[in-house]
Design a protein around this nucleic acid. Structure first.
Lengths: 343, 343
DNA sequence: TTGAAAGCGCTAACAG
DNA sequence: CTGTTAGCGCTTTCAA
């Protein structure tokens, strides 16, 4: 009668378990704290009562108390994109394995969302924020640091004090790509990029162009849209339509490369690598598909992630910029060199 | 001198802001609580002080107090897979827009991880758990419910009291696929599926076979591997190697379909749709790529997600099973019918 | 509209 | 090894 059904969620608390087991609530806490000292018998009693009552430690409360949330924020846009999705999959898997909890913050849409994302991370007292897209505001970053939060920027060239900036050595890869095309005997070498590239992607372009200048070779540049398959399709069409149709092209991402290959094949009847050599970047799953068989650069994903985790669990906040070599993956989208290599 | 640098993270608390602004800590709380009554002047003072001190509400504490975390768990495996990634991208985006926070739990690897995932969700007092892969243990589900947690199972056929089970109408799609192939004039119709399919995917197969039986048509079945491009490649190769090489095939996912198309094209020099009609399911981004141009079924993603959100924010826990029609997307991987349609 | 007091569920520090 | 005490930072009564 007087028992009112409370609208408030009724959860089982440590004190309930303690009462049931006939011990103090602290013993309950200790039972669920690795490394705490409880006698086997107390432990057993607690575990049994917890099982019966359906008790589960409230990590909101324990996090608050210990000021350690165990949460790591992943901030990213366009997470449906193959390379991004792979990154997030591996990050979340390893984070999980390391006992961390991942909070995914999707910043697709307006750019200001990166700020909101960071704000959200701060209010949950996230232990670290790993930023895969966009750049944070330096003043907000300070708030992060003063809350003991770590910051990681992946594949961003901006330099950002107090954070780990990590990514592939884009420039070196660009150079390698150019030289590979040159050595494959390409006569008219092209570069295709999105007109909306991130700083990391621009570095690939830079490296490529630098190597071209050094070799005294003129490069055909075609640029369009945002980094995507569609942009590649458009660029490829423009490229193949030119008087001086290129016979070798470096695409700054695999998605663009797939578009270029399809434009050549489906719209012009041209084949890769016989008519056009193509090199991409990222080594997305589709690069391995038999319809593309794309020669590309594999991002050093594992190394990046390992370093991230190490950084997130390390004590000292500092600044570090790390460039990891991207592995060149030879498949079959670049013409084989028929003559013996010089020297 | 006696000022020791505490290793404990030093965060700015509401009481600090209160002191700085010359008001009570409660006023600070109210300033950051939408709809609470604070005078404009107090509010302004608080906001200013908060800005200066770099204060951000601790949501761990407020969640604990209000027993509302605002967190929704997304439980999924193989999140790098195109369809899965798209799902997660859209879910997280809309969740974010609805003011919720998404916790991503990657269950790739052993199957038991679904249990661990749910356990984690419970301990963070997640408001809902949306399960995209695997099925939870019923007894654990009860713990979820008693903690006021909502449960959603996407594209799983198991029926699960107390939860929302939602997904496309797989069976109907399977039937439609068969009829489309039949009407396209295919003489030898095949079905390809992974040998490791989920219950939802199996329904597609069932619908397809049912329609075949009704039409009195024998179907060539080829099954292999886990749901992936590679499996499609293998199945396609086997299919094209047969004496009675099929001229129309329904693949239970687009990934398999892409593999089948590539096997036919790259390994046998066969073209789609001239030599082989192919229908897929999911409408992944690659289905639209010009190299595939795949006729397929678009998952009713938007509807599924809207329903999820509605469910997660609704008060009454109950059981509901919803099947939404999958939209048939005509592209160019199915032979056009040359004769006028009967009737 | 404001402040004082009580408590969300838990764990750290201390004593026994 | 165990229990008591005192908070973690916040919000919610309640009274002014």
């Amino acid at each position: 009668m007087s028992e009112k059904v409370s609208s408030r969620k009724q959860q089982v608390r440590a004190v309930d378990v303690a009462r049931h087991a006939g011990v103090s609530r602290v013993s309950v806490s200790r039972t669920f704290t690795p490394g705490a000292s409880v006698s086997a018998s107390t432990r057993a009693k607690v575990l049994k009562s917890a099982e019966i009552l359906g008790y589960h430690v409230n990590r909101l409360a324990s996090s608050l108390n210990r000021s350690e949330s165990g949460i790591v924020a992943l901030i990213a846009a366009e997470i449906e994109t193959p390379h991004r999705a792979t990154m997030i999959a591996e990050l979340s898997e390893k984070l999980q394995a390391a006992g961390k909890v991942t909070m995914l913050i999707n910043t697709s849409g307006y750019e200001e969302r990166v700020q909101d994302a960071l704000l959200q991370a701060i209010s949950f007292r996230t232990e670290a924020a790993i930023i895969l897209s966009g750049a944070p505001d330096p003043s907000l970053a300070d708030t992060c640091f003063s809350n003991g939060m770590k910051l990681v920027l992946i594949n961003r060239e901006e330099d950002f004090p107090g954070s780990l900036q990590i990514g592939p050595d884009n420039k070196a890869a660009g150079r390698t790509a150019f030289n590979a095309l040159l050595r494959a005997g390409c006569q008219r070498i092209a570069l295709s990029n999105s007109s909306n590239a991130t700083s990391g992607i621009l570095e690939r372009e830079e490296g490529f162009l630098e190597a071209a200048v050094e070799a005294g070779v003129n490069v055909i540049c075609e640029v369009a849209g945002v980094t995507s398959y569609k942009a590649g399709l458009e660029i490829g069409t423009r490229l193949m339509d030119r008087e001086d149709r290129p016979d070798g092209v470096f695409c700054t991402t695999d998605l663009i490369a797939c578009g270029v290959i399809d434009a050549a094949r489906q719209r012009f009847g041209l084949r890769t690598p016989e008519d056009l050599s193509v090199i991409g970047f990222d080594n997305i799953p589709q690069a391995e598909w038999e319809g593309y068989n794309l020669t590309t650069f594999a991002q050093p994903t594992d190394l990046i992630i390992d370093k991230c985790l190490e950084w997130c669990t390390t004590q000292q906040p500092s600044t570090e910029a790390v460039k990891l070599p991207a592995r060149f993956v030879w498949r079959n989208s670049v013409q084989k060199v028929l003559v013996a290599q010089s020297q």
